[in-house]
Design a protein around this nucleic acid. Structure first.
Lengths: 148, 148, 148, 148
DNA sequence: TTTT
DNA sequence: TTTT
């Protein structure tokens, strides 16, 4: 009876910050920028481009994929949900933060990942040898022999 | 090169607050709740349901539609983008707020709107005589004679 | 590097047809109608409403949920992917069919399911005692103690 | 009361076929491929990758953008709706075709379009001088001086 | 803090 | 008929 879905295509602002909880679960966070194009209104007003920053949070397999393959500057497709939480800042003031909990990620910047060539943008026409995308759940819940 | 899209199905927390700017443009705001179901983890932990509140902002025709047809408790489909802004609160502390600027709305609670019967849930099987949904842009940009 | 996503809100055209494969996997199929509103073009042309029928296919837990809770006339949210296949019809002519393989379903028509009261629309403000929605995967892949 | 939305990220199979109707409206069509990754089931079965071909239809400004900027092999984000129609083939047999009527397109393959360098994949780090994406409606319906 |  |  409810839907909370976010889909973003944007650029990673910083290399992911990945940490592991006591139970071994990985959590990755990084900022992602989406930018609206500049345009001109009917009355001639110029509306400049505008960048929105999103706080992306990944868990488990997606976090591990991000740790290995996601870097500052990369273009990503992210699908997930909006989630807000509050915390007390260093001055004891209650702050709210809105995060995007991702459940799907597609990497739109291809990179070769062979030793010595890491971090290089993909050459056109050269196929990557490493997985360049990730859908963590895809195989995990396959409990029979049907290919869907 | 960028995508910033949000899709929500949830319930309206309060009647919309609608105001008109000096240039006649309508702006409507209201909170929308989406609720994740409770569930039980593999290890037996009960995860309770969790409600997320979204700050919805509508402009122009959609705001006018909301003023006429949207009420507290209604179930809505909202499509739009995430947009954050900052403001100084009454104590001079800088606050951030995240809003959903909607560009599409579908009303999933049907109501008759004839005089005297307003606010009644729709009878099953009876077609509504009033617009029960709104896509403000749909007709506005039709500048030729093609039906798409 | 690829995305194939469909999101529909529409009405079920017939009670689901559910069958069980030899390995016990359930498959449910039913038609779902989405309807574009009628509207008037700038040049005065009336564009009538138009109904699109979608062939929905559900697997496993979602199929079992559909068998129990989905009925003709119900309004559903369906999320999935487009998938086409060919078959030879009774005249040996090769036919193509496009289906929506659903991986998420939300039931937007609430029904009480107690004996004797089935098929009744939900009273406004009364919480359902039965699950009124389904996300089959949600608990299945939870392998640690984190509530996400 | 209805939603019919498709979102695709895939590769263009052929250069767009663009034609102009008598009233000057442009229509572009081309195939777009989305590919599901290969994966291994829990029981060890290898499921090969699978490509789905989508018939994309663009109108008006989006069609004109496609005519100028979209080429075979390009990666695109497409948002639109599912629409089916029937026709009689050359043998008088009634055939059905499902098309995606796009209302948004984002070009994920960047190309320089300066004279002499057209059709070349973008060099990493070199900014394109031409619009590399298109949202036809974005400016068209701006009828006041508000930047949204 | 990204990208075009 | 694309792409990885």
């Amino acid at each position: 009876m409810s839907l909370n879905k976010v889909q973003l295509i944007g650029n990673v602002g910083k290399d992911p910050d990945v940490r592991y909880l006591d139970n071994g679960v990985a959590v990755a966070t990084f900022p992602l920028a989406t930018t609206d194009r500049a345009y001109t209104l009917a009355n001639g007003t110029q509306v400049p481009e505008r960048t929105e920053w999103h706080n992306i949070v990944l868990w488990r397999g997606l976090a591990e994929t991000a740790e290995k393959y996601v870097h500052k500057g990369d273009k990503l497709y992210i699908e997930g949900k909006i989630r807000s939480r509050s915390y007390d800042d260093q001055n004891g003031i209650k702050r709210y933060i809105v995060e995007i909990f991702a459940d799907n990620m597609e990497m739109l910047t291809l990179r070769t990942t062979q030793a010595g060539t890491a971090q290089q943008p993909m050459q056109p026409g050269v196929a990557p040898q490493q997985p360049s995308s990730a859908q963590a759940v895809q195989t995990a819940d396959a409990s029979d022999d049907l290919p869907f």
